[in-house]
Design a protein around this nucleic acid. Structure first.
Length: 423
RNA sequence: GGAGAGAUGGCUGAGUGGUCGAAAGCGCCGCAUUGCUAAUGCGGUGUGGGGGUCAAACCCCACCUCGGGUUCGAAUCCCGAUCUCUCCGCCA
């Protein structure tokens, strides 16, 4: 949520920022409701103060055995006016909240301005495509030929958009998960968390998937629970409505979780292979930090995610997303893309974002400096990494001409010291 | 799923209609005392909003899980919801 105070103080800046995000918002309407709201609140509080005085006085007189009827009548007279103001206040407040909850975060000042993915900027590239003296297969053929990736049976069980990994390929995924969690917890200072995969709607509002992305998520209507689209949701809400101490920050969490996405807007795209699934696994990195630390922390998380790819020996590049391609809540985002020679394309395996205080305002996550007033923390998160596309990267890059796949060094301890995947 | 009990400030825990934003203890902060530590004494110590101020002081409103209701007045009475705990049942 944007700071209402900022909208009041500098509506032009807000308008500009929203526009860069591709959002045309009626800021004047907000400001008008906002003004009206504070007038109503002031008036209402004056009535309350009056009523409190009267009640106090009635108590005193009653104890003194004096007559209280006149005062009681005066107090009762206030009620209808009070009720009316209360209704107006509630209405204004919910209108304002509805507007605020739908306004995206502002991009940081130096984020490249653009309208779509074509204007994203490549800010780093690591490695080079591996030497392959043969024509590399796409992972869907490679996996099927190994007998370890079965699209047909996955569809039989769950319909389109699901995968079925088996044998050494299923083990490879588990190895990757364990490797990444070990790396982040042992070397990067994250605390591992096991999170709920079903969450309340309020949690999704807190991390800013709702209301905008409602159509992207699976919902259990009988219980008003939602399947998480990412572990970012539970992780960001761990400290919702809390006031942390400065000494507790930063808090760095990592979690493995499945992610469930309806991909409602992507029908027909990436229908083959593991690239776009209704369910996939991900290791997530999430940080709560001091405002002045968040810029540096964003680069740190990016580095932690990049290190996984480097250690796996995968050729990748880093994009800074332009204003028009960033997500609703993000103030700056880096995407990590791994090169997949079989498909012949770059695949996004991580998205690392800072939200500033945007999520913290929504979820009510604050901290207190020594002797100070509570302030909102900054939240950041990044994938570290998303499994299916990393598997694609490993398969397509490490495949051999005979259809077997070399296992990257760092994963071998997690694969029983096996060195290759072979049918 | 059935039966019951409960939800008060950072924590423990009093409080059944007015002087309760809330006793007491613990914790924390400050000061005093003190070879050091410990102990002791005194004072302070919630959150949000609005007003006020250069900044404070200060003033007002709201908050005793949440939402309704009764009442001039609710932590306290009534209704509903949520959550927690115990027992039974079921279950990976």
């Amino acid at each position: 949520m944007l700071d209402p105070g900022l909208i009041r103080r500098d509506p032009e800046r807000v308008r500009r920022g929203l526009l860069a995000k591709g959002e045309v918002a009626d800021i004047d309407w907000f400001l008008q409701l906002d003004r009206e709201g504070s007038e109503v609140v002031t008036e209402l509080e004056q009535l309350n103060a009056r009523k409190n005085r009267l009640s106090e006085e009635i108590g005193k007189r009653k104890r003194a055995g004096e007559d209280i009827e006149a005062l009681r009548a005066e107090s009762a007279e206030i009620d209808p006016k009070k009720k009316q103001l209360e209704e107006r206040k509630d209405r204004l407040r919910s209108d304002l909240m509805r507007i605020l909850m739908r306004l995206p975060n502002l991009p940081l000042d130096d984020v490249p301005v653009g309208t779509g993915s074509e204007q994203n900027v490549v800010v780093a590239t690591w490695g080079a495509p591996r030497e392959q003296s043969f024509r590399p297969k796409a992972h869907w053929d490679l996996g099927a030929d190994l007998g370890m990736l079965d699209a047909k049976r996955a569809a039989k069980v769950a319909g389109s958009g699901f995968s079925l990994l088996s044998g050494q390929l299923a083990q490879l995924e588990r190895a990757l998960v364990n490797y990444m969690l070990d790396l982040h917890t042992r070397e990067h200072g994250y605390r591992e968390v096991g999170v709920p995969y079903l969450v309340l709607g309020t949690s999704l509002e807190g991390s800013s998937q709702l209301p905008k992305l409602e159509a992207e998520m699976y919902r259990c209507r009988d219980d008003d629970l939602w399947l998480i689209p990412t572990a970012e949701v539970p992780l960001t809400n761990v400290h919702a409505r809390e006031i942390l101490t400065q000494a507790e920050l930063p808090i760095r969490y990592t979690a493995f979780s499945p992610c469930f996405r309806r991909e409602a807007g992507a029908a027909g795209a990436d229908t083959r292979g593991l690239i776009r699934m209704h369910q996939f696994h991900k290791v997530e990195l999430m940080v709560y930090t001091l405002p002045e630390e968040s810029d540096a922390e964003l680069l740190r998380i990016r580095e932690h995610a990049e290190s996984v790819l480097r250690n796996l020996g995968l050729h990748y590049r880093v994009l800074e997303l332009c204003t028009g391609d960033m997500s609703f809540g993000s103030a700056r985002t880096y995407d990590l893309e791994v090169w997949a020679p079989g498909c012949g394309r770059w695949l996004e395996v991580s998205s690392v974002s800072t939200f500033g205080d945007f999520q913290a305002r929504r979820a009510g996550i604050r901290f207190r400096r020594e002797g100070g007033k509570p302030e909102h923390v900054h939240t950041l998160n990044g994938s570290g990494l998303a499994l299916p596309r990393v598997i694609v990267g490993v398969l397509e890059n490490y495949q051999r001409e005979d259809g077997s796949v070399e296992i990257p060094d760092v994963l071998r301890p997690y694969m029983g010291w096996r060195t290759e995947i072979r049918a």
